[in-house]
């Protein structure tokens, strides 16, 4: 049984990510690393990768699902856009994560979170043009565990400020 890569672009679209991950060169690198399934969530993107199913490699894509939890859980590596939801969900499941920054977004603030989480050692980040390099140089076992956020602290704070007993 080989390993699975799951790619997600979130609610909107990120065509550059889909085309660079499904490019022949990237697929070759992935195969070399022992991955043999590539599942892509492409959102409302205009680029649809050609599905391929050979004896040693499977590529599938879909646009949306109610929940991506199952896909994340069954993946061995997640490649995601920098959206907080996708990042936190993936890290929450304890899966290795590579965040790909979308350089075309106005005032690209999403890079902040990815950089900080990279600084804290929870993930790798790159752009579409450097993903091949990142895949080849990354060391997934060096990534640190990510402790989940504590919404209960928020609840306690809210109870206090509204005067709830």
């Amino acid at each position: 049984m080989g390993k699975t890569v799951f790619v997600t672009v979130g609610t909107t679209s990120f065509d550059d990510l889909i085309s660079c991950v499904s490019a022949k060169e990237t697929v070759r690198i992935l195969k070399g690393l022992g991955y043999n399934r590539l599942i892509l969530q492409i959102g409302r993107g205009t680029i649809e990768p050609a599905p391929c199913c050979t004896s040693d490699f499977l590529l599938e894509f879909f646009r949306y699902k109610d929940s991506l939890v199952e896909d994340i859980k069954s993946a061995d590596l997640v490649i995601s856009h920098a959206g907080a939801g996708s990042c936190l969900e993936t890290l929450g499941e304890g899966k290795p994560l590579i965040v790909v920054i979308n350089e075309q977004l106005m005032s690209n603030h999403q890079i902040e979170l990815a950089k900080q989480l990279y600084k804290d050692g929870h993930l790798y980040y790159c752009t579409c043009s450097t993903i091949g390099n990142t895949l080849q140089t990354m060391n997934l076992s060096a990534l640190k565990n990510f402790s989940p956020g504590k919404p209960e602290n928020f609840a306690a704070f809210l109870d206090k400020v509204v005067g709830m007993k």
Binding site: G10, T11, T12, G83, A84, G85, S86, L88, E89, G149, P151, E152, F154, A155, L158, D159, M164
Partner: peptide, 16 residues
């Protein structure tokens, strides 16, 4: 859209 909703639902999930 997207991430904002996920985040706010996480916050709501802990409220009494």
């Amino acid at each position: 859209s997207g991430g904002h909703t996920t985040e706010i639902l996480r916050l709501l999930s802990s409220l009494s």
